[in-house]
């Protein structure tokens, strides 16, 4: 762990919905070019925490935070949110392609950030779709609506869309929970390839999935005030075989949650 480069980091990070403390003083270093999984029972704050990295929680007016989240050592709260979100992409639980063509879905981000040239866009769209392992299935009809694809294809389209703006980090919020096993497997294979180029943080309910895809695992749990705490963080192998906290062991072995 000491040899890893840190891409994102949280330092004494707490988050409140109004008076309610949803995240309690979280400290974590997310290593670059690795897949880090967040596991824990429902309501432990893992999705909320994930959304802190690209400041999606800014959309909720009642949210306040203390502590700091860093991207490459810089406080994300002090960065331009538009630029931050270009660097920190996100894939959501439910595939959410725009009601536009496949091409326009992938080209959406690059167009926003200034790529106007048609042939540049075409190259970028192809590259992104190839990287998200969707190209061969859609290359003949890029003008087809993104909504007409299957759930698994839609999710890979959303991954292509996120990749197209050349992010450093990709956040995935239960990206396979709405998909069938075959489509899930494809997404998992994809993560394995993507981590060469991107840092991936994934929230998942599926313990096997965390075991299969991640290099590092963070286990979160609510305390007696229902606030989310980070209980344990380490290499996935170690967390799954020799957890140092008994609560982690209980959860992993299926005794609760």
């Amino acid at each position: 762990m000491e040899t890893e480069v840190t891409r994102m980091q949280a330092e004494d990070y707490s988050l409140f919905y109004g008076q309610f403390k949803a995240l309690n003083k979280i400290n974590i270093k997310i290593p670059a070019n690795r897949v880090t999984a967040f596991i824990g029972p429902s309501g432990c704050g893992k999705s909320t925490f994930l959304r802190s990295f690209n400041r999606m929680n800014d959309l909720i007016p009642s949210v306040t935070t203390t502590g700091t989240v860093y991207l490459d050592g810089k406080d994300v709260g002090k960065q331009d949110v538009v630029e931050l979100r270009r660097k920190v992409g996100m894939v959501f639980q439910r595939p959410n392609p725009f009601p536009k063509s496949i091409f326009d879905n992938v080209a959406y981000g690059p167009r926003l950030h200034g790529t106007k040239n048609k042939s540049d866009l075409a190259v970028l769209v192809e590259k992104s779709l190839r990287r998200s392992a969707l190209w061969d299935e859609v290359k003949d009809d890029l003008q087809k609506s993104g909504m007409s694809l299957s759930g698994g294809q839609q999710q890979r389209l959303c991954i292509a869309r996120a990749i197209a703006v050349n992010p450093e980090v990709i956040l995935m919020d239960e990206p396979a929970s709405a998909l069938d096993p075959v489509a899930t497997l494809k997404i998992e294979e994809l993560m394995n390839e993507l981590k060469n180029k991107y840092t991936i943080a994934i929230v998942t309910h599926n313990m096997q999935q965390a075991g299969r895809v991640s290099d590092y695992t963070a286990f979160m749990l609510t305390d007696e005030n229902r606030s989310g705490n980070l209980i344990e963080f380490g290499a996935t192998k170690q967390i799954f075989t020799t957890p140092s906290d008994s609560r982690t062991e209980d959860y992993i072995s299926g005794r609760f949650g």
Binding site: E83, F92, R94, P97, F98, G109, R161, A162
Partner: peptide, 25 residues
């Protein structure tokens, strides 16, 4: 909601999200 979040998460501003995703949808 997913359209809006998807657009914002790609680094679109509020106005870009409204004009390019919300109104067309």
């Amino acid at each position: 909601r997913g359209y809006k979040e998807g657009s914002l998460a790609l680094g679109a501003t509020k106005w870009e999200t409204i004009s390019r995703v919300m109104i067309p949808a």
